[in-house]
Computed example of a mutant assay.
Amino acid sequence: MNNRTGIQPEPILDVLKTQFEVPADTTADTDFENLDLDSLVLIELAVILTKQYGIDVTGEELATAGNVANVAELLSAKGADS
């Protein structure tokens, strides 16, 4: 049984939908490229997520992750390492 709680994608999706006005039907698996999220938006998202979770993440890491599901996994992994 794994009692480590990972970061869920839903709160990250909520940030994208409320702060960056991505379409309401966006899912955790929707590629950032399909959402036309540029590097500035990803940097802004990184700042928000760093403050929200207390885990340092960069816009470049978010771009590499490519979608919300992968970002949640990235944050979970980085949080587990700290």
Rank of each mutant, 00 (worst) to 15 (best):
V41T: 12
T58Q: 01
P9A: 07
D29R: 14
A80W: 04
A46Y: 01
A28G: 15
G66T: 02
A46K: 04
T18S: 15
D38W: 02
I43Y: 02
F20Y: 08
D25I: 01
D25Q: 12
P11H: 04
T64L: 06
E21A: 15
K51H: 10
V68H: 11
I48D: 08
L13V: 13
L16M: 09
S82N: 13
L13R: 13
L42M: 08
V71W: 03
K51C: 06
L45I: 07
D36F: 06
A69I: 06
D38L: 03
T26P: 09
Y53R: 05
E44K: 08
S39H: 01
E33V: 14
K17D: 08
N67C: 04
L49I: 08
T50Q: 11
D56F: 08
M1E: 14
T58R: 00
A46F: 02
N67L: 00
L37E: 02
T50M: 01
A46H: 01
D81I: 10
K78F: 00
L75E: 01
D38R: 08
A63W: 02
T30A: 02
I12H: 11
G66M: 01
Q8H: 13
E73R: 14
V57P: 00
E44Y: 03
Q52L: 07
N2E: 12
I43A: 10
L16G: 08
R4T: 15
G6R: 11
D31F: 09
A28S: 15
I43F: 07
L42S: 02
L74W: 06
L37G: 06
T27M: 07
L37R: 03
V47E: 09
K78N: 04
A63N: 11
A63I: 00
P23I: 08
I43K: 03
L75T: 05
R4D: 12
V71C: 04
E60G: 11
V15L: 06
N34P: 09
I12E: 08
R4A: 14
L74P: 03
L62E: 02
N3V: 13
L35P: 14
A69P: 09
Q19P: 03
F32C: 03
N3G: 10
D14H: 11
D56Y: 05
Q19D: 12
D81A: 15
V47S: 13
D38V: 07
N3F: 12
N70T: 10
